[in-house]
């Protein structure tokens, strides 16, 4: 794991663990967002998409002119198995409200079994995220094939809706406060 990031993550854990201060921050944050903000809040999702299925699926959503929430920012990786947990934590630390990992359907991975590795790693990642005090719904794993442009759009829409209900992520602010106070 990248050492910079390890520090960042430790910081996040410490900040989030310190309930009182974080709560103030959260209050401040929600108040700033204003009433009724949940509906208008546009979550920022970092999507790690495997090159062979999911990236092509997202591309298809685009070329098919499918309308979906403009909330996902895509980072292409060769295979879902390339997604180092570090990347997910980094995205959350940088202010992502959610992280979406997409790979080929089980059995269809371009590299035979990369997605099975992802599948095995993912529960650990979810647990780690939860242990850091972050709602584990903020990370999501989905299988999207190259022909499933509509499915990609549906996944993004659904995740966007759930993140709206959850509200903005507090991690970045918690980290900033933590750094400022150190």
């Amino acid at each position: 794991m990248n050492t910079d990031l390890a520090t960042a993550v430790d910081g996040a854990a410490a900040a989030v663990a310190d309930g009182g201060r974080t709560a103030t921050m959260v209050d401040g944050h929600t108040r700033r967002s204003g009433a009724g903000a949940a509906a208008s809040f546009q979550p920022r999702i970092v999507g790690f998409l495997c090159n062979w299925c999911s990236y092509a699926g997202a591309d298809l959503a685009g070329t098919s002119r499918t309308h979906y929430a403009a909330s996902v920012r895509v980072v292409r990786v060769m295979c879902s198995a390339r997604v180092d947990p570090t990347f997910v934590l980094k995205a959350l630390a940088e202010g992502a409200d959610g992280v979406l990992i997409c790979g080929c359907h089980p059995g269809d991975c371009h590299y035979s079994e990369g997605n099975y590795k992802t599948m095995r790693r993912f529960p650990l990642l979810k647990k780690m995220v939860a242990d850091l005090g972050i709602e584990d719904e903020r990370v999501r794993l989905e299988w999207v094939s190259a022909s499933e442009g509509q499915r990609f759009a549906d996944v993004v829409n659904d995740m966007t809706q759930r993140l709206r209900a959850l509200g903005p992520s507090k991690i970045k602010i918690a980290l900033a406060t933590d750094r400022a106070e150190r």
Binding site: M1, N2, V77, M78, C79, A81, R82, V83, D84, P85, T86, H110, Y111, G114, K117, R121
Partner: peptide, 22 residues
């Protein structure tokens, strides 16, 4: 074939995926 499964798994961060580095 550059899937990167090993890169993500290496506990020492010793593997580099060319064009998809950390």
């Amino acid at each position: 074939k550059a899937c990167g499964a090993c890169v993500a798994a290496c506990p020492s961060g010793a593997i580099r995926a060319r064009h998809f580095t950390d």
